[in-house]
Nucleic acid binder design. Structure first.
Ligand SMILES: [Mn+2]
Ligand SMILES: [Mn+2]
Ligand SMILES: [Mn+2]
Ligand SMILES: [Mn+2]
Lengths: 223, 223
DNA sequence: ACTAAGTTTTAGACGCGTCTAATGCGGGGT
DNA sequence: ACCCCGCATTAGACGCGTCTAAAACTTAGT
């Protein structure tokens, strides 16, 4: 009953709302989705009519519970697909995103279930992002920090890497910076640069990239 | 560059052309695709403009070489997906068709390759239909006969079952009539019915169903 | 050769998702 | 308080894939 495109707007709104908080603005969605602002406005009207978002004109939009559920459903598809491609079809975790984006709107509930089952009901995808449960319960708040904000001398564990950019992902993959990796933060931003040690290697990361790596401070997650 | 819908028209044209020969008529496509004849006419014009079909007005349409290649590509996706779902995701061969139909337009060439590889480059799908090669070479002509046309007393091997109808498929699956099964044809059409023995069981098949089961007479294929 | 039946095409419309150009709103700096 | 500027919305258009209703063609039967 919802088009692919509507599902993408809802997913985008969810992601942006999670990182910037509501309301999500027209221009942010336009940029995220690669579309012009008037296009977003008209879609947002449609979504508001269907009560998938609450819209305040000129302010932006916030997902309704129903809209959030749709977003979680698509996110579950996306992340399950990424996990499956990586685990069973030999994809590298840096090339998995695009394929999942194309498929996420077209799989049945049966497919979702069987893939989840084949994977053993995973909780996180290859980038470290949480996979919504089958019941689509709201996700826990994110309590990680950006690598760019860590102090020199700290040791942290990589929790997530942004799946938004293939190039960055490939760059990090080559250097062993992936969810679960331990990082010693050596220097921060002598000039727009973070230097870390990982597995004995010294790696230099532009701040733009370091900002998209989320880390945990204590090793509390090694349960 | 081609829309999903165009791909579906090309695939449908291929299938109909294979079973009825060219030209494929507007109304046949309309019925096959569940769409009205004017809709087909307008799509066929578009396809002819792009030289994917040769069209003779009021007569019908025949695939160009390029159109056939597209059709084979989609058919390859479809049948590879069906095979993969059956083999690796625990689908029954009677429920595989719909999922493949939804996914066939959205997988990448990389996905196609990895799935083919995981399956060991299969030649036929779970319904016994041939899978086009990666190079999309034209398929060999079909030399099977319809079960409905077999004489009483013959023993035949099931080559293919039509994947068009879930209900029929489930019916046949339950009774062990699947590609590779040996059938003794006991009686033909006492009144619209074919009776066969398979694995010791006696099965009665309405002619409508028997017409959609393709069989081989000699056991020559047991190479 | 004519006509009726059936099929195909033309004509005109609609909803969707998108765009560009023009207009409208609203908050921050003087 | 006012003005500007940036952002958002409105207005109007377009291509796609679909439809219904009307017209045109084909063909088979007399
Ligand atoms: Mn998507
Ligand atoms: Mn991911
Ligand atoms: Mn299809
Ligand atoms: Mn099949």
């Amino acid at each position: 009953m919802l088009s692919d495109v509507m599902e993408d707007y809802l997913k985008a709104t969810y992601v942006l709302q999670r990182e910037g908080g509501p309301p999500v603005r027209t221009s942010d969605l336009a940029e995220y989705l690669g579309v012009t602002p008037p296009t977003v406005t008209s879609m947002l009207e449609k979504l508001a009519d269907r009560e998938l978002v609450e819209r305040e004109k000129y302010k932006g939009v916030e997902l309704s519970d129903e809209g959030e559920t749709v977003a979680l459903e698509i996110l579950r598809h996306h992340r399950l697909l990424e996990s499956y491609l990586a685990e069973h079809l030999d994809y590298d975790w840096s090339e998995v995103h695009e394929e999942a984006d194309a498929l996420e709107h077209h799989i049945s509930e049966a497919f979702e279930r069987r893939v989840a089952n084949a994977l053993g009901e995973p909780r996180v995808d290859p980038h470290g992002d949480p996979i919504p449960t089958e019941e689509l319960a709201p996700l826990a708040d994110d309590d990680t920090a950006a690598l760019a904000d860590i102090e020199e001398g700290e040791t942290v564990t990589v929790a997530r890497v942004s799946d938004r950019d293939d190039e960055h992902l490939a760059y990090l993959a080559e250097r062993g910076i992936e969810p679960g990796a331990e990082l010693d933060v050596v220097t921060v931003a002598p000039i727009d640069m973070v230097t870390v040690h990982v597995e004995g290697d010294e790696i230099h990361l532009p701040t733009a990239i370091a900002a998209s790596i989320r880390v945990e401070r204590e090793t509390r997650a090694t349960a």
